[in-house]
Amino acid sequence: MPFQQFVVKVNSRCNLACRYCYMYFAADTGWRRQPVTADAVTLRQIAHRIGEHVTAHGLRALSLVLHGGEPLLTDPAVLGAFAADVRDRAGDGCSVRAAVQTNGVLLTEDKLAVLAEHGITVGLSLDGGLAAHNHQRVDHAGRPAWPAIRRAARLLAEDRHRGSFNGVLSVIDLATDPAEAYASLLALDPPAIDFLLPHGNWSRPPPGLPAPAAAPTPYGDWLCAVFDQWWGADRRRVRVRLFQECLALLLGLPAATEALGLQPFTAVVIETDGGIEQVDSLKSAYEGAAATGLNVFDHSFDQALDHPGVAARQAGTAALADACLSCPLLKVCGGGHYAHRYRAGHGFRNPSVYCADLSRLIRHIADALHRAATP
């Protein structure tokens, strides 16, 4: 499958030091060797390679994610010019959905206006809608980022900026009450919420999951509690990606997600030096886990498709552990997030470290769907 999502690191540094960040506090230290920003020559070459890939595969649509670090450390006008270059090279026959994923601290009215002028929407990363939920989101001096994040959330929720608001990404914190976390996020009025499991694996278990194969399912329980709030509401106020994709897969519909299902993975990351990498979350496994050894100056994205790591991500059931292949939830779970399967000395051919939690959530959603469909 050709790449259809291009995650471009426009800046390799961040103005925050979130304590759980897989980029700066995990196994991989490659960010230290990256240029701070992607220069104009690199951005032009990335746009060229994307256009080349569009032409080679006749793509009708693609996603361009401007990422970091913190992408708003780069002038929004530069981001806009880059998005315009990508659109120009992709041609009229390919729709380019451009978005910036930001922690929101640097978002202002003026910057939002420039992004909107260039057709770039905004995704906001935060861990809940209250200060207590964001206690791990601090700057390099340890000061809380929440006041600035709240200001960004309110700005995006205003009617005049509503069209620019993609939604929020929220990493689950077991110390947070799920009903409170969900209600606080609803109060920010985002169009969508994407709940993320903290990146961990069998060798570096996630917080609160010291014995992943044991009976307790803390993350599954947390998500089930939120699902019940979402599912039981008198009207659906917000899209919750994980729940909607699980429902689609249970109904036999295709769903494109890293967390669930067997759809081929079609995202690629380009670092500030032009290096072509696999998805960032692999950096939580070991040093160099995301590297391909390729770059946009010497290699096409088609060459990246031939990389063994990329091929494994697109191999479907061929990349799964025997335990996954015999599981009745296979087509829905899909083995879980690829990065969460890693075990030192055994690679990625393992069930997800969240296997029990995913089973708990999927079965819970399936039961709710069955009850709703039963006269």
Rank of each mutant, 00 (worst) to 15 (best):
H53Y: 09
T42H: 04
P190R: 02
L59K: 07
F195C: 06
Q244T: 13
A56C: 11
Q263G: 13
Q4S: 15
R151Y: 02
L325R: 15
Q263R: 07
L294E: 04
P76C: 09
A233L: 13
L115E: 02
V238W: 03
D127C: 05
A323P: 07
A344S: 14
P218L: 04
D228F: 14
R239T: 14
E258F: 06
G316T: 01
R44F: 12
D298M: 01
D357A: 08
E180S: 14
R343F: 13
G80P: 02
A141S: 15
C327A: 11
P375I: 01
P144H: 04
L251D: 14
V100A: 06
T55I: 09
H57I: 11
I276G: 02
T374V: 14
N350W: 02
P76T: 04
H307N: 11
R236H: 10
I365H: 00
P308Y: 03
L185M: 08
E158C: 08
V7T: 05
V86Y: 00
P218Q: 05
A47T: 09
V238C: 07
H118V: 14
G93Y: 00
A225P: 02
R360V: 08
Q229L: 14
P144T: 06
R137T: 01
D88R: 15
R160K: 14
R150D: 12
H140E: 06
D39P: 04
G91N: 06
L330S: 10
H140S: 08
D85S: 15
N15Q: 10
G80C: 11
V78C: 12
R97T: 05
R19F: 04
L188R: 05
T176I: 02
I50M: 08
R150K: 11
G58V: 14
N15E: 09
C18Y: 00
F6I: 08
D280V: 03
Q278F: 09
